[in-house]
Design a protein around this nucleic acid. Structure first.
Lengths: 139, 139
DNA sequence: CCTTGACCTTCCAGTGACTGGAAGGCATAC
DNA sequence: GTATGCCTTCCAGTCACTGGAAGGTCAAGG
């Protein structure tokens, strides 16, 4: 299997596959006589594994640690569950942030018409948002 | 006002302030005789503006475009409202993605105990997630 | 046999938004 | 005088790729 095939099968750019090899997430594959990378089904599984873990929010460094467990013959699941716990908390935090941001954007849009057409400011829409976020009575 | 003061006041790293100057988002400030950057209140307002716009989801490039409107003496608000429209749509999309991810993470966690302790795989938790995402009957 | 086009190779460099560190200058307190 | 905590510049690194250049390989078509 050449690099384009395995990349297409998994839905990534061939450059990404080479990059994963470079940083050690994928092993160096066999080469054809002409120097083309030749991937096995196992390589493809490993690539799917990396992309799945990444989709779950793990960094490539974390994926690398999981693969290292495997290389040491250890079971990574406890580690993975710990990472996933942190991921859930993190995702919750990011959802809350985005929802606050969404409310703010929506409020800005509805208020934009009513804002005075002030001169001498960069953009009244954004400066209105800054004023909302910075209470007038600071310590 | 020295760089540390303005950075503290706005809640950013002094390095960030220098970086904004480098990429042209902040003007080059006056210098004290000893070479220290000396910021005005207007510089601080501009920094707050940048951070506010960024918090609303604009890239620094977009912030730069808004500031360029100002420099050309034009009103950026129509542009900004267009950007904010895209932002709302984008935030909605990201919230939906994160919620799907959160559901997946939660499902994985509750199912983790029930997963068989399979040998020969990198991590059954993640491979279970991959199996969920890849339907068994592909075209 | 030659060409075309799609693939592959390596290497270098850039993205965005910073952040860290080194090496040195300045200002104030003790 | 010296200790500290700022400040300066410059270089390099982060993360996860992605783009491009310059060249090699392979199968199909004329």
């Amino acid at each position: 299997m050449r690099i384009g095939e395995v990349a297409d099968a998994v839905g990534v750019n061939p450059k990404t596959v080479r990059y994963y090899e470079e940083i050690g997430l994928l092993p160096q594959p066999e080469r054809t006589p002409s120097g083309y990378r030749d991937y096995t089904d196992e390589d493809q599984s490993r690539l799917v594994f990396v992309k799945t873990a990444q989709r779950l929010g793990l960094s490539l460094a974390e994926v690398g640690e999981i693969l290292a467990f495997r290389e040491r013959g250890e079971r990574p699941c406890t580690y993975v569950l710990g990472v996933l716990d942190r991921q859930v908390a993190d995702v919750d935090r990011r959802i809350a942030e985005l929802e606050a941001l969404r409310a703010e954007l929506a409020a800005l849009k509805t208020q934009a018409d009513r804002l005075p057409r002030t001169d001498g400011c960069y953009c009244s829409v954004i400066e209105h948002a800054a004023a909302m976020a910075t209470p007038t009575h600071e310590p």
